[in-house]
Design a protein around this nucleic acid. Structure first.
Length: 863
RNA sequence: GCGGCCAUGGUGGAACAGGUAGACACAAGGGACUUAAAAUCCCUCGGCAGAUAAUGCCGUCCCGGUUCGACUCCGGGUGGCCGCACCA
């Protein structure tokens, strides 16, 4: 089969607009990227990029993410693996509802239109995706299985209900997401946000804390930074929880206050007690007007940890006192304080200002005593305290602990507290249970029925999926499901009396916590097909933005384990290899009024930027992450139209390492486009040369070329294995630069040129697949497609060098360089180095103190 | 605020595991070809001194340390980015 399309007419010209759609059609018709059937004999590779939210258009971040994934997928295929490379849509979420409110378009219609558009854009990139496995999370065929999984989790006790707070906009009468709260006010209404308590669904991720911690350490193919972030997020801490006797304002004995601490050694430095605003005592004291006002003021800070920790430390005296367990007649004031987290530990602490920064700030503000109990030698000298001391040292001012180090003191105190029957060793995790209820329409309905008589009743499996009603409007405030009486009312499956549906929908993180497993097989009857997940999972290489390092990845890890516990699959860790890519940035432009201007409306003249249409002078801002709000986005489809997908792919891979942020520049794209043209020209020229079949051979040049071929192949193979695509591109620049110089008069053996061209096209295959296919169809004739070619073997004898260059340093600075045999012995090497003319002149008559030879690396002479 | 990461010429970056700093590109400047332009090709390109040489000194955000030797390791800063549990 001759796949020649344009080569006949074009030959030396490069027409991406013609060859790219052509090859995309061929790949699709031939199902080139459909994986082979499951077979344990064949090594599998599951390559996955985080699926996109269908916001309307792909952006450069997507191009980068999916190009990286595509290079890996195509490369693994060439290496002989059975590759699974699917794609789907994270299709539920807030922006669809916002569009419904703003543009009066139904979320479903808006979402599917976006999917259609973005799918076409992704296809134009020439991605090697098996589109037969496409998933949209808003499709009932997907979420019915999710509802089944939830019911299984509920049955297994993994899902439960409890009260928790949400941000409430009293004007719009709607629940706000954290990002919709700006400076404590609703983003649309501007009304001060209140907190409202709702009963919501949770998943017990906290009981998986220890496993999540143990397993993350073992994930070898994950970036260390992501592993560290997850470890810190889970936040294991060991300490002791114990009770203080507590007395109320009338000095009557009250219920004891239980505290958790990781620093029991500082107990003798305790000078106050802090409790959270939700502590039982706080709730009782709400009767007091001042305390009530204080608690309400604290609630205005917001629900995010960031807001709470940034807020000034404040508290109010309760009049309650606690009794120190080891100091006779010592009582500490109990404060309600805004920095005590109710969800962590017991919601109460003893404050030791000398050795905890937050306690220190609090104590300074309220004139509370500061007693140092840990002293280090250096610290002893400075008496003035301007911050808490958290380092090592010996215990002072601490009765029976004096003189001990911190660890000894901890043990001793804990022992004593346990003896007094007041304390227990305890392990705490920072990780909280996962709240999954959302008071929104555009999400997966939670398959639960609330019956006055029977309570919480799961929707029977045969009634799944619970679909969303279509006839909703977004004019009324609040969740449209809540006000949809007809959809809500249902008869109880148990008692047949009138009941109501759960009107909350799932957090969209649920949708993305198992899609990668669903891709293994779109089983019609059950969420997951065991034999398919056994074969394909875990994902061998998962690729996505660093912003998902904690939440999405942690939830998916937990969810996978929960799926195992409920019998849906057999593994507990979903992602074997993880790669986090950097962001795509662009310069920002503003006019005099401060309006943001799109880069496409900007022209540059003499280093100044002007508006293309109005001609006004614009202010060039710093390069920042592309975002719609600052309009510094570049629509990749414009670039694909102008230069072609291969150029766009080449450009996003070049220069910057993939884990680092990249800065978009138009000139860079043009340069990439020029070089792609040069590659095409080189392919055509070399092909002509091959057809001439040179017989008068220059052996030296032939071997030289073959060495270049194999060295390049060797380096590029290593770089692809380590995902260093920028280095791959640099080597291709060099390689093309070399082979484009070959001329007939070099008399190089045709086989060697053949090898050059064949290597070039196969190496280009993962990066610029259309160009590679077109070139292969010209060169490879009847040898099939380039995407079916195996990765060539490297001939070791061609990459080995017998001579090496060795720099000679004097006192650590390079002064000369020699070329020596690789296997030279050290004494000979020493002799050569010392007799080197320029080295001699440097040493002069100075005494040689030391001579260091690092084999095959460097010689350093110390004088 | 807490946790994590990053910083190398005018620009993006390279430097394998502590061993030649600046590969490969972009921009800029010069030249060739052309009536001209575009395209293409060639040359220069960290700073200072020197002659546009040879060569020397300085130089990887700042300060200090370890080492024969530090872009790389350690301590302390500065700046930027990401996350902080209801954005996805």
């Amino acid at each position: 089969m001759a796949l020649l399309v344009l080569t006949d007419i074009s030959m030396s010209e490069y027409y991406p607009d013609k060859i790219e759609p052509y090859w995309q059609k061929i790949w699709s018709e031939k199902k080139s990227f459909k994986p082979e059937p499951i077979s344990e004999k064949k090594r599998k590779k599951y390559i996955l990029e985080m699926f996109p939210y269908p916001s309307g258009n792909i952006h450069m971040g997507h191009v980068r993410n999916y190009t990286i994934g595509d290079v890996v997928a195509r490369y693994r295929k060439a290496q002989g693996d059975n590759v699974l490379h699917p794609m789907g849509w994270d299709a539920f979420g807030m922006p669809a509802e916002n569009a419904a409110m703003e543009k009066k378009v139904h979320p479903k219609e808006w979402t599917y239109k976006n999917i259609e558009n973005m799918k076409a854009q992704l296809k134009s990139l020439g991605l090697s995706i098996d589109w037969e496995r496409e998933i949209a999370t808003c499709d009932p065929d997907y979420f019915k299985h999710q509802q089944k999984i939830f019911l299984d989790f509920y049955g297994a006790g993994i899902a439960y209900r409890k009260e928790s707070e949400v941000n409430w906009d009293p004007v719009d009468k709607t629940v706000l997401a954290n990002e919709q709260v700006i400076d404590g006010k609703g983003w649309r209404s501007g009304a001060p946000v209140e907190r409202k308590v709702l009963t919501q669904w949770f998943l017990k991720i906290s009981s998986d804390s220890q496993r999540l911690l143990d397993e993350v350490v073992k994930l070898e193919k994950w970036p260390d930074k992501v592993k560290t972030m997850q470890e810190n997020w889970i936040g294991k801490s060991t300490g002791v929880s114990f009770e203080f006797d507590c007395f109320d304002a009338e000095e009557k004995k009250y219920d004891p206050i239980k505290v958790f601490t990781t620093r029991p050694d500082t107990l003798f430095g305790a000078t106050f007690c802090g409790i959270s605003i939700d502590h039982p005592i706080s709730k009782v004291l709400k009767k007091n007007k001042k305390i009530k006002e204080f608690i309400e003021e604290c609630r205005k800070i917001g629900t995010t940890e960031e807001a709470i920790e940034k807020a000034e430390k404040k508290g109010i005296k309760t009049g309650f006192k606690i009794k120190h367990p080891f100091i006779k007649d010592k009582f500490l004031d109990v404060y309600i304080a805004n920095f005590i987290l109710s969800g962590y530990g017991t919601g109460a602490i003893f404050g030791c200002p000398a050795h905890d920064q937050r306690d220190f700030e609090f104590a300074k503000k309220y004139g509370i005593e500061i007693i140092p109990v840990v002293s280090s030698e250096e610290k002893d000298k400075s008496d003035s305290l301007d911050e808490a001391y958290t380092g090592e040292g010996k215990l002072i001012n601490s009765s029976f602990l004096n003189g001990m180090n911190i660890d000894e003191a901890k043990d001793k105190v804990i022992e004593k507290l346990i003896k007094n029957n007041k304390g227990n060793r305890e392990t705490n995790f920072r990780l909280r249970d996962w709240g999954i209820s959302r008071q929104r329409y555009w999400g997966c309905p939670i398959p639960i029925i609330h019956c006055d008589k029977c309570g919480i009743v799961p929707v029977p499996e045969e009634d799944l999926p619970v679909k969303l009603p279509e006839n909703v409007d977004f004019i009324k405030p609040g969740n449209p499901l809540e006000s949809h009486e007809k959809w809500k009312s249902i008869s109880c499956p148990k008692c047949k009396n009138g009941a109501v549906r759960e009107t909350d929908t799932f957090d969209t993180f649920i949708d993305s916590s198992w899609y990668f497993a669903r891709f293994c097989e779109l089983d019609k009857k059950q969420p997951l097909n065991i034999s398919a997940t056994d074969y394909w999972l875990p994902v061998d290489q998962y690729i996505g933005g660093i912003e998902h390092a904690i939440l999405h990845l942690l939830y998916s890890r937990f969810f996978t384990n929960a799926l195992r516990e409920t019998g849906h699959l057999n593994i507990s860790e979903p992602f074997y290899g993880m790669f986090t890519q950097g962001m795509v940035c662009h310069e920002t432009y503003q006019n005099i009024n401060g309006d943001w201007i799109e880069p496409e409306l900007v022209t540059v003249k003499d280093n100044e930027v002007f508006h293309k249409d109005t001609g006004e002078l614009l202010k060039k801002g710093p390069s920042e992450k592309m975002s719609k709000s600052k309009k510094n986005v570049v629509d990749p489809s414009v670039i694909i139209e102008k230069f072609g997908a291969d150029t766009a792919r080449w450009f996003v891979l070049s220069d910057s390492p993939p884990e680092r942020d990249i800065f978009w520049s138009e000139s860079g794209v043009e340069a990439a486009g020029k070089f792609i043209k040069k590659i095409w020209k080189t392919i055509v020229e070399l092909n002509k040369l091959i057809e001439k079949n040179i017989s008068n051979k220059n052996i030296e040049k032939t071997i030289g070329l073959r060495k270049i071929n194999h060295k390049t192949l060797n380096n590029i193979t290593k770089d692809l294995d380590s995902l260093s695509f920028n280095k791959v591109i640099a080597r291709l620049y060099e390689f093309v630069g070399e082979i484009s110089k070959i001329s007939e008069s070099d008399n190089i053996d045709t086989n060697a040129i053949n090898e050059s061209l064949s290597f070039l096209l196969i190496m280009l295959g993962p990066i610029t697949p259309h160009l590679a296919e077109e070139g292969w169809s010209l060169f490879g004739k009847d040898r099939g497609m380039v995407c079916e070619q195996p990765w060539p073997n490297i001939e070791e004898n061609l990459i080995a060098e017998s001579f090496i260059r060795m720099p000679i340093q004097v006192n650590g600075k390079k002064k000369s360089e020699i070329q020596v045999d690789k296997n030279i012995d050290e004494s000979k090497l020493k002799e050569i180095a010392l007799n080197d003319d320029s080295i001699k002149s440097f040493i002069g008559d100075k005494e040689i103190k030391k001579l260091i030879i690092v084999p095959n690396r460097i010689i350093n002479i110390v004088v």
